[in-house]
Every structure is written in C-alpha cells, then in structure tokens.
Design a protein around this nucleic acid. Structure first.
Lengths: 111, 111
DNA sequence: CAGGATCCACGTGGATACTG
DNA sequence: CAGTATCCACGTGGATCCTG
C-alpha cells in the first residue's frame, strides 16, 4: 500500500484476498453457499454444473484453509458432507452479493 | 435467484460480473486504477509487475468493453494513453476496496 | 455420496520482437 | 510509449476410474 507501491505485487495481505476471489469459481462458491445455510457437496456441484468434482473439492479445500468455509462430515453411509460459511466467509459473501445485486443496474448503463 | 437455480450457470447477468472479477488481474486492475484519478499504461504495468503487456492490454480492453474503464489517447510522440474508471467502474472498485480494507481484520481471525 | 488419483488436452499467459 | 503478433511452455482443469 504505502505510496506508489514499492513492492510490485504481493505487497500486502489484501493481495492474497484479491487473488483468492480472482481464482476461478471461488467467488461463485462463496456467494452460492452464502445463499443457503449449508450445502452438501453434490448440491453445490449441481448448481455450478460447469465445475468438475476435482476443481470443486480443490476450491472448497482452499476456502476452508483460508477460513471462509467450514466443513462438517457426518459418518452416515453413504457419507454426507456439509459446507457453510464462517463469519469471515459471510462477510466476503455479502461483499460479493453487492456485485450480484448491482448487476442489473450495471446492465442498464449505456457506456 | 429464483429457487434452487434451474439454470446451472450463466443463469443471470450477475454471473457475467462474477466471472469478470474472477478473471485473473481484473480485480487488481480495477482497484489499482480506482486508487488514482487516471493512470498510464506503463504506470499500471509497473505496479503490477507480474502482469505482461499482453495480458494487461487484454484486460484493459475487456474492462473497457464492459464499461468499467475509459481510455483516452493523446497523440503525442511517443503516444500517451490514460485509463480511468467510469462511474460503473468506481462502484466496482469501491466494492473491491471493501475487501482490501477488510483484509487486515481477516488476517486476525483465528479460524 | 464425497472426493482422491491419474492421465492428458487445451488454453492461458510468458518471452521476444516489432510497429505506429 | 503503448501496444500487437507469434511462438510455445506450462499449468489448470476435464474425463475417467476408484475408494472409504
């Protein structure tokens, strides 16, 4: 931050989060999960049809590591896994929701 | 949107914008330009050292097409090109700035 | 059902050179 | 200076198969 940015990039913790939401699908996931109280893996996958299991699980793991998403596993047979947002995740989801809510306005803009 | 989301993805205009900020570097660029009144190409590139000219010009073109960024070219020798945010761009930049401002708090979270 | 493992195709983006 | 064009390496992600 400072002045003109001495360090080229990765200069502040903000960069970490900007990069996080710039990672394909993370914004979608955080927003989607935020619209529900909790969601199962398959449920998320169904809504984001274009995401493969591999990528979805990678993203959920990343978001979990970064503290935006919690994970609860129930030892049923077959297995049930639930995901939801931590307080931190809800804050991010709310921010993303601002974009979602603005989108209709933005589409009206002539420029 | 609706209920459980009939359309898998691309279901609403919001998706376009979520995808936009999920595109590598766009969030950084919009935020950075928003911190200044206007910036020259080389100036932006200097701050985002890891971005190549190719990608930077692609992203600026994209953001311009989507109406978030304006472009002004002055016919000096050598050429001078300035970029800045449209009202729409400023709104987006402000949203992204919320993330930047939250980042320090988020780093404190223990989870 | 939830997701790890593998293999590989494809597209994104980097390096370089060049132009108005 | 502000890009564009080309060529190509590399990594991301898709498809498939498999397991707790």
């Amino acid at each position: 931050m400072s002045e003109q940015g001495k360090q080229p990039e990765g200069y502040c913790s903000a960069d970490k989060y900007l990069t996080l939401i710039s990672t394909k699908w993370t914004a979608h996931i955080v927003w989607l999960v935020g619209q529900h109280h909790e969601m199962r893996f398959g449920q998320i996958k169904k809504q984001l049809a274009l995401v493969s299991s591999k990528v979805l699980s990678e993203r959920l793991k990343l978001l979990n590591q970064e503290g935006f998403v919690w994970r609860r596993q129930e030892e049923t047979v077959p297995l049930s896994v639930y995901y939801g947002l931590t307080p931190k995740g809800e804050e991010l989801s709310d921010i993303i929701d601002t974009i979602v809510k603005k989108s209709d306005d933005w589409d009206q803009y002539k420029d």
